[in-house]
Design a protein around this nucleic acid. Sequence first.
RNA 1: GGGUUGUUAGCUCAAUCGGUAGAGCAGCGGACUUUUAAUCCGUUGGCUCCGGGUUCAAGUCCCGGACAACCCA
Length: 548
Amino acid sequence: MAAQDSTQSSDAPSSDLEGMMQLRREKAERWKLLGFGAFANDTGPLHSIASITALHEADDAETLEKLKTENVAYRVAGRVMLSRGQGKLKFINLRDGSGEIQLFISKREVPDTIWTLLDEIDVGDIVRADGLVMRTKTGQLSIMVQNLKPLTKALRPIAKHDGVEDVEVRYRQRYRDLIENHDEVATRFRARSLIVQAMRDFYSQRDFMEVETPMLHPLRGGATARPFSTHHNALDVNLYLRIAPELYLKRLVVGGFDRVFEIGRSFRNEGVSVRHNPEFTMLESYQAYATYHDVMDSTEALLRDVDARLLARFAAYGENRAFTFDHFERRTMISLVREVVVEKHASIGSAWALLGGTGDYRDAQRAALADSSLSPAEHSLIKRARTAGELLFSLYELLAEPSLTTRYRTPDGTQSVPVFVMDHPLDTSPLARQMDPERQREIYGEIEVTLCDRFELFIDGRELCNAFSELNDPMDQAQRFRGQLENRKSGDDEAMDYDADYIRALEFGMPPAAGFGIGVDRLVMLLTGAKSIRDVLLFPAMRPEGAV
RNA sequence: GGGUUGUUAGCUCAAUCGGUAGAGCAGCGGACUUUUAAUCCGUUGGCUCCGGGUUCAAGUCCCGGACAACCCA
């Protein structure tokens, strides 16, 4: 080929990264010599690849031959993912946002300029092609190219298979991860988008209104967690990034929006792990004139509905599930603790009337501290309990919660069954409504712990949802806020602030209501089988990169 | 915070007891008109994560650091 003698000007090595990039820059220059821009943008209207394959996947070669004579032409654009030559033929796998199709290029069928141009097209480049649909001898649906226009030169090489595995590169350079590990990664983020859309639809269909409340908060509230701090210069005020939208959403319920929900980011200034990212997405909903039992029902409906929508589009995520949505267990926290204590920690059980023994929570606390099957760290958490409720909660977290997955399974033992854990101690739930004392007496008899109308949902070892009937008594709420301040004084830096405006809102009267929160990232992890939260966040938090 | 493991070509990975840093793919040159990770011939490419040390000799051993994964708290 005569052109090459004059154009192979580079003496850079053709194989290290800098050499490859240099060669690609030179190829971009040659696009210009052939009359094309290296970064053109006038593509005109295009057909999506998926629409073409959907339309013609059933057509046999003969039918397509006929279409060819009728000049049914298509114009597509996308990234060159694979390319192979066969003498005067060239095959290119082209991918756009909708799918992939093969381009069939014959020297006979394209202008000479285009045939020459093909030498300057690399895997990774973005091109536009015009042509007719056809089937190759082997039956592969293809576009027989009549014209080709290069659109964007990729200066960096991509791996055509064996995509990058290093998780650090995958998270930092997500664009590259999406290209090279397309099937796994792009599919999972499409699934995430669908899941969020399905949740939105679920609430919209039930007459919930979607709202957006502030992310910059003057006070810490709505959850117990360490916040990020920032400063507003013009107002000269310190602000926190929200740790939860809860208190603002309930102000809206006061204002008469009986059903609201918000999907959005919250921020917690804590460590990163496979289950934690400093910014994460929650959905919170509030429904006036409902109780936490109503919300349990709608939670089951939500999860089944969202999952059905997901599997209708991405069936593969339904295979080999570690959990089921066919059946949900509802268990009280006290019964869960009793179960475990009776089986494995009899000394604690016999020490506390609540769990079937004789004494009060201090006796149980002493028994737990003497229980040598518990680790020093577990002992220190138990030691910290200052009330019967706090001790119950600690025992639940330490003894009952870890075994939910193994304890509650389908009859054949293959899948874990979701468990609603109900009726938490009041003193660990500063925004929840106290259980009606008569009702508590009916269910539990005379017990040492004051309970509230709350549940958390656990699925396959993960806490997914948190919900309660809302506390709407302003005097009670004010007292709980004061309790939080006491906790702060005694060293709890996750305690909430006293929110006087929220109390004022409650003084105008909030209808009885139930609220609900679900971790969207964790739900996506669960439904798509992701092991790390970083696999469901497009750009997970990373330590800043050194030199690029 | 502690422990374990890892970091070698653009990508995926080798390298025995401390003894010349390799392969496949990608790239580059060539052949090929129905390929599917095409094939065939030829070929280029390395600050072995960074900094010290031991040694005639270090990807390999020692010390320190960066980053990551996993486990524990």
